[in-house]
Design a protein around this nucleic acid. Structure first.
Lengths: 213, 213
DNA sequence: TCCATAGCCATATAGTCGTACGGTTTTGGG
DNA sequence: CCCAAAACCGTACGACTATATGGCTATGGA
C-alpha cells in the first residue's frame, strides 16, 4: 500500500475551512480556491477529497449542525449530571442556539447562510430538516421527561410545545442577528430574548420535579 | 424632448421579473440576462434602468416587502371597517405572512432568499431590518390599541409582546416552509401553526373591546 | 420638418469559477 | 530495494457573469 492519510481528518479540515470562510466573508466567498487557501492546501487536494463543490458544502453543513448538536447534547448531559431542573437545562440549551456573543454570532451566520441556500438546494434542505427535527425531538423529549417527573402538567402536548419553542428560538435568533443592539423599552434585545424564552418555558414547565427537591 | 417611457413602471416590471425568477428557480438563477428574458426586454434595457445588479436586487427586495406590507395594511383596514376585534385582525395579518398556500409559499421563498443574501449584503440587510421593524411596529400599535379599548390588560408591554409575536410567526414560517406536510400528533403543521399563533394572541388579548359588543 | 435625446438593443470585454487533467512526491508492503 | 498506488500540486479549459460600449430607433418640441 502507498502512503496513507487520515481521510476523515482531511475532510473535516477542509470543511472547517469552508465554515471559516463563510463566517468571515459570507457564503459567496466560499469558492473552492478560497477554501483551499484557508485550509492551507491546494485546489487539487480539495478535489481529491470531495467529488464536487456541492458535496463539499453539504459535508460542511452537516459538520456545522453536528457540532452544534453535540454542544447542546453536552449541555444536557452536564445539566443532568448536576441534577438541574429540566426547564433550566432547556433554557441553557436554547440560549446556546442564539447569537448572543461573537462565537455564537459567527455560528449563527454560517447556519443561516446554509439555510438560505437550502431554499434552492434539496440536499442542504434535507440537512436543515433533519437539524430542525433533531432540535424538536430533544425539546419534545425534555417535555415528556418533565411530565414524568412533575415539572410539566400531564395534559401538555409535548410535540406541540416543542414546535412552539423551536419556532420562538428561531425567530428570536433572527431578530438578535439582525439587530443585536436594539432596545425594547428599558431592556436590550438579548435580555428580552432570554426573558421571552424564560416566560415561554415557564408556561410549559409549571411544576417542580418530585424526584429530588 | 425625445420619446418618453413610464420610468417607474419599467423599473417595477423588471423588478417583478426578478421576483418571478427567484420564486421559480432560486436566487442564483436571477442573472441579469435571465431577468431581462423574463421581463421580455433586452439586457441593455435592464442596464438602462438600473446602474448595477445590486441596485436592481435592492429595488426588487423593497418591492417585495412593500407589496407584502401593503397587503397587511389592507387586511387591517378591512378588519377595522368591519369592526372586527383587534386580535382577529392581527391573527389574519400574521397568517398572511405564513406560507400556507402556493401563493404565500412563493412569496415566502422570495423573501427568505433575499434575507439569506442580506447576511452579507448591508443594503439588503437594512431593508430586512426596516421590514421587521415595520411588522413589529404594526403589532405594537395593535397591542396599544387593544389596551385602549380593553382587549389587552393595562400592564402589558406592547413592544415586548410585539417582539414575541414577530419571533413566533417568523419561526413558524420557517417550519412551515421546510416541512409543510409535517404532522404534529393528530394535526398537520398548518393547523398547528394557526393554533399556536391563536394561543399566543389569546395570551395577550385577554379581554373584549368595550367600545362595541 | 428636423434633430436632440431618451429609449432600446446586440455584442464585446474582462474576470471568475468549478472542474478536468497531467504531473510529481511519498510510502507501505513484497 | 522497489514500485504500485495514494496523496498531493499547478495549470489549463470551458462555461458563465456583470458590465462597458457603440449604434439604431422613435418622438416631443422648436
Amino acid at each position: 500500500m502507498p502512503r496513507t492519510a487520515d481521510h476523515d481528518a482531511r475532510r473535516r479540515q477542509i470543511a472547517a475551512a469552508v465554515v471559516g470562510v463563510v463566517a468571515a466573508d459570507g457564503f459567496d466567498a466560499a469558492t473552492v480556491a478560497r477554501v483551499a487557501a484557508e485550509a492551507g492546501v491546494s485546489v487539487g487536494l480539495v478535489q481529491h477529497y470531495f467529488a464536487s463543490k456541492d458535496e463539499l458544502l453539504l459535508f460542511a453543513y452537516q459538520q456545522v449542525t453536528g457540532d452544534i448538536g453535540d454542544r447542546v447534547a453536552q449541555l444536557i448531559a452536564d445539566g443532568d449530571a448536576r441534577r438541574q431542573p429540566i426547564s433550566v437545562v432547556v433554557a441553557a440549551s436554547l440560549a446556546e442556539l442564539l447569537p448572543l456573543d461573537e462565537r455564537r454570532r459567527g455560528e449563527y451566520r454560517v447556519a443561516r447562510a446554509f439555510l438560505g441556500r437550502a431554499l434552492d438546494n434539496p440536499s442542504l434542505a434535507s440537512v436543515a430538516r433533519a437539524t430542525a427535527a433533531d432540535l424538536r425531538g430533544r425539546l419534545s423529549a425534555a417535555v415528556t421527561n418533565g411530565k414524568e417527573c412533575g415539572e410539566v402538567a400531564p395534559g401538555v402536548d409535548a410535540e406541540l410545545a416543542a414546535t412552539r419553542l423551536a419556532a420562538l428560538v428561531d425567530g428570536l435568533g433572527d431578530q438578535l442577528y439582525l439587530e443585536p443592539q436594539r432596545r425594547v423599552g428599558s431592556r436590550d434585545l438579548p435580555a428580552v430574548a432570554r426573558r421571552t424564552l424564560g416566560e415561554a418555558l415557564a408556561e410549559t414547565f409549571t411544576g417542580e420535579c418530585r424526584h429530588y427537591r
